[in-house]
Design a protein around this nucleic acid. Sequence first.
DNA 1: TGCCAGGTGATCG
DNA 2: CGATCACATGGC
Length: 265
Amino acid sequence: MVFRDIHDLDLTHIFECGQCFRWMPDGSGAYTGAAGSFAARVFAEGDTLTVEATGGDEAFWRNYFDLDTDYGEIKNRLIESEPRIRKAAEYGYGIRILNQDPFETIISFIISQNNNIPRIRKNIESLCDKYGEPIEGSSRKAFPSPEALAQADEADLAAMKLGYRGPYIIAAAKRYMEEGCPSCRDELLSYLGIGPKVANCIMLFGLRDMAAFPVDTWVKHIMNDMYGFDEGDTKGMQRFAAERFGSLAGYAQQYLFYYYRDKKL
DNA sequence: TGCCAGGTGATCG
DNA sequence: CGATCACATGGC
C-alpha cells in the first residue's frame, strides 16, 4: 500500500533511533522488519511511503507510523520552548514515534536494561525465532504471545543469552496473561524487572504517553553536557523535561537521545 | 583487563 | 528514604 503526501518522515531515523529493534536496512534503501504479527518491507520516495506487508490494513500501518501527527509542528513547539534543542531536532529530522504493541514493548524494554542496542536486537530476534508464530509470506516470526512466553523454560532463555532478564520475561508474560495490559506507570513499576526508566520507555513507545521522558545513560550524558545537570540527578532532569517540554517531552527525549548516541558528542 | 551498554532488585544505614 | 553492589553478556 502507498501513503501519499507524507512529510517529516525518514525511515533511517525512525528505525535507528532506538525505539524499536526488529527493522533493518535491506541494502536497497528499504527496511524490512516486523510489527507485532505482521512482516513488511517499507521504503520512502519523495513524499510517498510504500508498505509491502504480509498483513494489517491501511489503518493499522497509518497508525503504526503515526502518519496523522504533524511532526513539523511538534518540532517548532519544542524549539520555541527550549531553543537549545534545535540542533538535536534538526539532526533527527523525520523521526516518528511508532505505535508499537504494548506487550512487545514491555518485553523488549525489559531486555534493554543494562544492555546495548545490537545485543538487544539479537536477544529479541532469538526470542521471536523460538517462541513466535511463523508469518505467512515471510521468513520472520511474529513477536511471541504472552501465552508462549509464559510457558517458556528458564533454562532455554538462559541458553539464548538473555542473562538475568530471563525470569523477568517469564514473570511479565504470566502477569500480562492474567491481568491484561497495564494501563499506567505505577502498574508497570510493580512488575519485576521494570524500574523508572523501562516504565517510561513502555509508557512512551507502547502506551503512547508522549509526556514520558525516559532517562537512560545517554540522556544523563546529554543533560549533563547541555544543561549542567549532575549525572545522578534523574529527578531534576525529569522535572526540567516536564517544565520545558510538557506533553511533548517524549518527542524531545527521542531527539536528544538519538543525536547524542549517534554523534557521541 | 576493566568499563560500558536505553537499569533494576536486594540490602543496609 | 538514598547509597551501594551484584547481576549475564559481549564489544572494545
